[in-house]
Design a binder for these strands. Structure first.
Lengths: 196, 196
DNA sequence: CACGGTATACACCGATCGGTTTCTTTCGTG
DNA sequence: CACGAAAGAAACCGATCGGTGTATACCGTG
């Protein structure tokens, strides 16, 4: 066999590393040491450096790998039968839901951008892509919803999204009452997004 | 004399340290080394540890010292003749203005909360206080402006404030067009804050 | 002048940083 | 069974981390 298969109980070293990197860098910040990462992943440092060129590359890869899951988390379960307004609101419902988790520390991609202040860092490039994709999604929904200025509304929505996730993650705000929903609703109404 | 006076050209080691700490921790993140801080301040490491108990304490002190300047930056120059709405809008005008600076990396207090994920960290306590003060200020203005739900509006405004500063600081958004003003105006209108 | 607090310079501490090297074990495949 | 690639264990690299110990120079005050 060309590629070695793994039994369900044991993921490949690569996957274990990416999972540990995602979890620990989110929990403790991007400055976690590779020693700690490898220990948590049960992988030797030697193996890690055969799989990735550097810590930076592994961090970027771990962020990249989470993108499909992250975006699916925010996607309406039945996009066909939902209105653009409902699909937009669903994103923020999910944000508010996720923020209730005890281990919530805000949007991991925004956190990475804030922590690594270097825009050239490979992980920053990945994170920026995620943010742009979210804005693009909002823009599409805004257009379909009949917003007067779809581009403006989309940028307003990511503003609220990042503000809410950052503040909730920092523990200075709670999203479990109607805060985000009320805010987004006000913006949708002001932009003229159709109710139905 | 009890306290040693300094001639204008040379600040005290304590002030030089606090200035360097504020500047470098903002520029490079809170993980900057003490060695680098002391070098930038022109102060020996030994002196630093005689003035502060720890790096954490010095970081907290440097944040604390910037509070009056930071809050004055956001305060309307002529509060008496301005309406609550104008005073609120002025905060965001100033935010947009500051974000144009080449060295802008977002609100330093929010950045500290995001970077040090530890809410117990002395610097986090200071930062949280600043954020609470901003919310309180918005709440007061909202009440005076006749908002239907002053508390809700205040929380919405800090959401936008932190979202805008974080995104501008991360370089994924520009505030120099009317983005924040349009957003805040929409929220003020929705909350029923008086125009005049 | 002599004193005492302040600051400096600099070596040092154990720990950890990102990254490399060497050697050994494991394991699927021929 | 024998082979070779993958993975692991652990020592090692120079650098830096936060923090100390020690000894010396400065400087305003008594």
């Amino acid at each position: 066999m060309a590629t070695t298969e793994r039994q369900p109980g044991k993921a490949s070293p690569r996957d274990r590393l990416l999972d540990a990197a995602a979890r620990l860098s989110y929990q403790d910040g991007v400055s976690v040491g590779i020693e700690a990462l490898c220990r948590a992943a049960g992988v030797s440092k030697r193996s890690m450096y055969q799989l990735f060129d550097s810590k930076d590359a592994m961090l970027a890869a771990s962020l990249e790998r989470r993108i499909p899951w992250y975006e699916a988390q925010l996607a309406h379960p039945d996009p066909g039968s939902a209105t653009p307004r409902e699909r937009i609101l669903y994103v923020f419902e999910q944000l508010a839901r996720a923020s209730l988790d005890a281990g919530y520390h805000g949007c991991p991609y925004l956190a990475v951008l804030v922590e690594l202040k270097d825009p050239e860092h490979p992980a920053s490039v990945v994170a920026r892509g995620v943010k742009e994709a979210l804005a693009a999604r909002f823009r599409t929904e805004a257009e379909q919803g009949g917003a007067r200025e779809p581009e403006l509304l989309a940028r307003q929505l990511v503003l609220v999204f990042d503000g809410a996730s950052a503040r909730a993650g920092a523990g200075v705000e709670r999203l479990d009452d109607g805060l985000v929903m009320a805010t987004v609703t006000a913006l949708l109404d002001a932009a003229g997004v159709r109710q139905a």
